[in-house]
């Protein structure tokens, strides 16, 4: 599952073990400081079951957990499955749970982990495929249910105009790399398995990105209330804590959306105001 991202400066005939192919590897001509060996417990298995297996890896300064996993792949477990691609925290592929915390393996430096055995597990909120690889396709099905961007009619000269200060709010949400760590740590999915009635923080961020766009015309509040199940969120901010892009998921996406849903469904004064003066703002309820 590894993408071919070989550096172009490498001689064609030189073969290097995969664990040195990293942005944090020592520069040419330097020797990385050896930090000793570390023990790992890596979950091996599939949807039917599995267990932990013990490995060791030689750690040098600057190594990240993904480097160690690749070293284990290269030296001890050639069949260890792990999804990865960019090694730069931008593709969102190498999500896993490191010492119980949902994190990107490529952005977790070994020297930041406490002494002792490092435990690596696949994401709990999704069905395992093999070892550290999980089936995240459910997320793509959820995304299809969210109405796409639909801009208002262009201006007389055939173009759209919007102010930078207005789109800055939604630009934060566009940083999302779809690593699904927020989905994994959300207890509504992780512990209560409400995948059928709850879209999860990733898709509230996506909905907020569309909903708050100054040119968008679609009202997604019915989706958020019903299919999206935003009421299940009890705003415990775990999604914000694990986001590798530091998106303020709860404060800037979920809570503003909960407030919009409250406007429409729970606030009698707003409902009265809209009924009296702004009938066009009432959302269209989904068909039963």
């Amino acid at each position: 599952m590894a993408a071919d991202n070989e550096p172009t400066s490498r001689p064609n005939n030189e073969v290097q073990p995969p664990f040195v192919h990293t942005a944090s590897a020592p520069k040419p001509g330097t020797v990385a400081e050896a930090l000793g060996r570390r023990d790992f417990k890596v979950w091996r298995g599939n949807a039917l079951g599995g267990g932990y297996k013990d490995y060791t890896a030689e750690i040098s300064a600057g190594m990240v957990v993904l480097d160690a996993v690749h070293q284990i792949q290269a030296t001890q477990a050639g069949d260890l499955a792990c999804r990865w691609n960019c090694k730069a925290g931008k593709c969102g592929s190498c999500s896993a749970e490191i010492n119980g915390k949902p994190r990107l393996m490529c952005m977790t430096r070994m020297e930041t982990l406490p002494e002792g055995t490092v435990t690596i597990q696949p994401m709990k909120a999704f069905k395992p495929i093999k070892d550290l690889v999980t089936d995240v396709s459910w997320n793509y099905e959820v995304k299809k249910k969210i109405a796409p961007f639909k801009p208002k009619a262009p201006e007389a000269d055939g173009t759209w105009r919007m102010q930078q200060f207005e789109v800055e709010r939604v630009q934060e949400f566009r940083k999302c790399i779809e690593c699904f760590l927020c989905q994994d740590t959300c207890h509504v999915l992780r512990d209560h398995g409400k995948h059928e009635v709850f879209a999860g923080p990733r898709f509230f961020v996506h909905a907020a990105q569309l909903e708050m766009h100054p040119l968008d015309t679609v009202n997604r509040e019915p989706f958020l209330k019903h299919d999206g199940g935003i009421g299940f969120c009890n705003i415990t901010k775990c999604c914000t804590e694990v986001c590798p892009e530091h998106i303020k998921i709860t404060d800037n996406a979920i809570i503003p959306l909960k407030e919009r849903v409250a406007d429409t469904y729970y606030d009698p004064l707003v409902r009265l105001w809209r009924w009296a003066f702004k009938k066009g703002e009432q959302p269209v309820e989904p068909k039963a």
């Binding site: 599995g50 999704f126 069905k127 395992p128 059928e196």
Partner: peptide
């Protein structure tokens, strides 16, 4: 989506 939390 059936979660198989076999690893946790």
């Amino acid at each position: 989506m059936t979660t198989q939390a076999v690893a946790h």
